[in-house]
């Protein structure tokens, strides 16, 4: 890796100022993607501005119907502290990478990176979450902008994620056996206003909502309601691990299984309007 200066400010204001003064600066969150990227010399920032000492960016706070998760909260902390309020989100966080990676990697870092096979984007999109930044609030629908691309501006830092808690939810992923990233992952969330289905790992343009599935499940919350549906394979990603047809098949299968799991496990009444 090229040498780089690391600075560890104590406040968000100081971090923003440092980024403004160093046009070639880069935010360092948990580093679990950024450090491997730097090792491969795929990026060469002159300054890394660590968020590691900014207390305000950490922790899960419980509000009525909602979790507010600090951007620098690790996956391990979300897995533990969201377990009661939002079990599907906690389970998703507890399935990212491995235990040591989960002790460093953060929700804000994952969202800002927007890896097309990352888990968090599916949860955030299916939950209709709001990404709070140093400058504004961005709805999940507006935030993800294609592979590794987001609505964030230069020097803008995610500070928190506001996640509405659904009545019931399930996340299923089919892990790529080597990387453990999602070859396909489906998050199904049941809200008063309807069912939301978000898909990661499979979209040619990154995470997406499968609106046909949402409409079908709104009419009848049953795996069989998905039977007539087919994803447009032209919009599905293909690589050496799995072609578009296989990924499309996985998405449908995982959605069916998620619905099935909810029908078996959700609290009585949670799935009815």
């Amino acid at each position: 890796m090229y040498d780089v200066e690391i600075t560890r400010p104590l406040t968000l204001e100081a971090a923003l100022r440092l980024l403004e003064e160093a046009p070639d600066g880069q935010v360092l969150a948990g580093g679990q993607t950024l450090i491997p990227t730097l090792k491969q010399r795929l990026a060469a920032p002159e300054l890394l501005v660590s968020l590691g000492r900014i207390e305000d960016l950490r922790g899960v706070s419980h509000q009525p119907g909602m979790l507010v998760i600090g951007a620098a909260t690790t996956h391990a902390t979300v897995a533990r502290d969201a377990a009661e309020a939002y079990p599907a989100l906690a389970a998703l966080a507890g399935g990212i990478g491995d235990p040591a990676v989960r002790n460093r990697g953060t929700i804000g870092g994952s969202l800002a990176n927007n890896d097309p096979a990352a888990c968090y984007p599916a949860a955030v999109l299916a939950s209709g979450a709001t990404i709070v930044t140093s400058a504004r609030e961005i709805a999940a629908e507006e935030f993800f902008d294609g592979l590794f691309t987001t609505a964030l501006d230069e020097g803008e830092i995610i500070t928190a994620v506001r996640v509405p808690v659904p009545r019931a939810a399930a996340y299923l992923k089919f892990a790529q056996p080597a990387s453990r990233f999602a070859l396909a992952g489906v998050f199904v969330a049941v809200f008063d206003a309807g069912v939301r289905v978000a898909v990661t790992g499979a979209g040619d343009d990154g995470v997406f909502r499968w609106e046909e599935a949402e409409a079908a499940l709104d009419r009848r919350f049953d795996p069989e309601a998905l039977a007539p549906l087919a994803l447009d394979e032209d919009a599905i990603m293909g690589d050496i691990h799995a072609g578009p047809a296989y990924r499309a098949h996985l998405v449908k299968l995982l959605t069916r299984r998620a619905v099935d799991e909810l029908l078996r496990n959700a609290a009585p009444g949670a799935l009815r309007g």
């Binding site: 679990q32 450090i35 391990a76 460093r104």
Partner: peptide, 21 residues
């Protein structure tokens, strides 16, 4: 995981954390 150590009681991969952190 050959590089796993504990930092403030938590397992981390020491090859994927800066010393300064």
């Amino acid at each position: 995981g050959a590089c796993v150590v504990h930092v403030d009681g938590l397992a981390v991969k020491a090859c994927t954390m800066f010393a300064a952190e």
